[in-house]
Nucleic acid binder design. Structure first.
Lengths: 331, 331
DNA sequence: ATCTCATGAGAGAGCGCTCTCTCATCCATT
DNA sequence: AATGGATGAGAGAGCGCTCTCTCATGAGAT
């Protein structure tokens, strides 16, 4: 009934437990015929090592926590960026044989839960998918002396390796594109200003407007579609004459497009729209959305590499990946 | 340097390891002043139980695997249904203090990986997020005698408790709605026919058409936006006179709307469109999409309940949750 | 023929915890 | 005063594995 142990394998193969262990762990100091006997026993008994016992002695768990620190539940399910990031990380971690424990850190309560879990030594490392600036998690975790890498530059200056895309540069490219196509009154729907991505993309917008001698027109959303729609209505109220809007993410851009449609503005004839992220849905909006693409798979891969380096002592400098302007019909 | 053990806590509190363990595990047979002493020691030392040691003796891991068995990588990242399901399950499992190990079972290779992992006794149970009929995983897992519940009725008749929504009933309601609003030539974009959801929703469509004496016009997609767009073009080629289309999921409906737009058809004037799932994006299409809602949170909760019953011996009958027609402007 | 040394295999400690058994203590009962 | 039963706490086995240490064996060197 119970799963076979190494002891059973050893007994069946007529060797000691130590030798069986050597075979299981691929040590080479075992004579071929003995190794074969052990392998046969393993096969016949359907032996699978007990991981609890193993990690009890090795002090490793071969698993990492993927902590999604996102207070707004809506964003997690709706922003495909999250699932893309998760999937990418999953694929990369599978490749190096690490299990992934997925955890939500939304409320302070779940926050404590995560900390306790990590402190419990359940995982060898942590990948943080968090963006909120005030997030106490990065510093809390780094205090636990657990290897931590972050997706997105942590807002508080904490010494955690991270991967990010070039938010400022991307925003600049997007707004510059609007300037170069002759738009005069370029508004922006900024992301939440307690997120680095929100701040940086707004900074990029301001940089270009300043240089091109235009006035900035700003509304702030929270990266949800709904907030994009609301912000767009607000912008149209503030400045009915605007002829372009740079939206800090595609999800809000979708909302903005809806509001523009409802207000009777044609895109791109009356108002040009540029988003950020290049989510799949950007191809399917009416009209398809001009946006800034950043390679999620590569970012996930970079994160995993950073974590590995943290384990094994390689370089852990932050990695900033470039963005690429994808021009579609909304601009 | 090393994390404190129960032994250290006991020593500091001046009690035996057994007593310290009693306090940690909340047993009541400890005198208050001793319990306080132990708690103080725990606090001072920052003690956290070693889970490997614990599960070595208890034979429990307090974690469950969430296996996403989806060959198409696109669907996982794009279909918000997946992330919603994952988030919901996560929330529900957190509530009962289970960790969640997320695994992808796309390739045969990762398949083997998952099986090995589950067989390794790393988890107390498995939640399967799978839809492909030919999926060998359900039967493979149930053979391992691990508690398994499935989201979506398994295609092969395997004795696994599952949760699903009423796909047939929902499809019927959607198509009936089209009939009742006077549509005559109602096509469908069906889902992949190796998925139960694909089959059942097509069955529902056929049921109503048969009863209302209409001819069925069918194209098949794979639940992706892209395939919806392709299928819609195909339907328009097959029967330019169609005046309604029931699409087996919202993602494909988004693609279909795009194709209809490109073909110059007005929605709903020329062609009515009904989707399925009520994803967030359905509110933001042009025009907003009529669709069938099924409560993801409740389904996740039901799954967790089933799993719990599997652990503790409660009822494990399949749970089928109703769907609800949400009428918007596309019909 | 003796000694040295690499090689392969076993013995056994110990990782940190839970849980059963055992035992001491104390209060209520006769 | 003697007994019985709660009650609370300790001793110690053991979960399944890894890994160091030890030892037996045989090949090569002297």
């Amino acid at each position: 009934m119970r799963r076979p142990t190494l002891e059973a394998v050893a007994a069946r193969a007529g060797v000691s437990r130590a030798t069986a262990s050597r075979v299981v762990n691929g040590q080479t100091t075992v004579a071929p015929h003995i190794r074969d006997a052990v392998l046969r026993a393993i096969d016949e008994l359907g032996y699978v090592p007990n991981s609890a016992a193993r990690s009890l002695v090795t002090q490793r768990t071969d698993s990492v926590a993927l902590v999604v620190s996102e207070p707004g539940t809506r964003v997690f399910s709706e922003d495909p960026l999250f699932s893309t990031a998760i999937r990418s990380a999953l694929v990369e971690l599978e490749a190096i044989n690490k299990q992934v424990v997925l955890m939500l850190a939304s409320s302070p309560k779940s926050h404590a839960r995560v900390e306790r879990y990590i402190a419990g030594g359940h995982v060898d490392g942590v990948m943080l998918l968090s963006m909120h600036g005030a997030d106490p998690l990065p510093s809390a975790l780094s205090r636990l002396r657990v290897p931590v890498v972050s997706y997105g530059r942590p807002a508080v200056p904490v010494d955690i390796p991270f991967v990010d895309n070039d938010n400022v540069g991307g925003a600049e490219a997007g707004v510059r594109h609007l300037v170069e196509t002759g738009r005069r009154r370029i508004a922006t729907i900024a992301g939440p200003q307690d997120m680095i991505a929100g701040q940086d993309r707004l900074a990029g917008y301001r940089n270009v407007l300043r240089d091109s001698d235009r006035r900035s027109i700003v509304a702030v959303g929270d990266f949800t579609r709904e907030s994009g729609a609301v912000a767009m209505r607000q912008l149209l109220g503030d400045d009915p004459g605007l002829d372009a809007v740079f939206v800090a993410n595609d999800l809000m851009a979708v909302g903005a497009l809806q509001s523009l449609r409802q207000a009777g503005r044609r895109v791109p004839d009356d108002v040009a729209v540029v988003g950020f992220d290049d989510i799949e849905a950007a191809k399917y909006t009416e009209p398809p959305l001009t946006t800034l693409r950043h390679p999620m798979m590569e970012q996930a891969a970079a994160m995993v590499r950073l974590l590995l380096n943290l384990f094994e002592g390689g370089p852990t400098d932050p990695i900033i990946l470039p963005t690429e302007l994808v021009v579609r019909e909304s601009s």
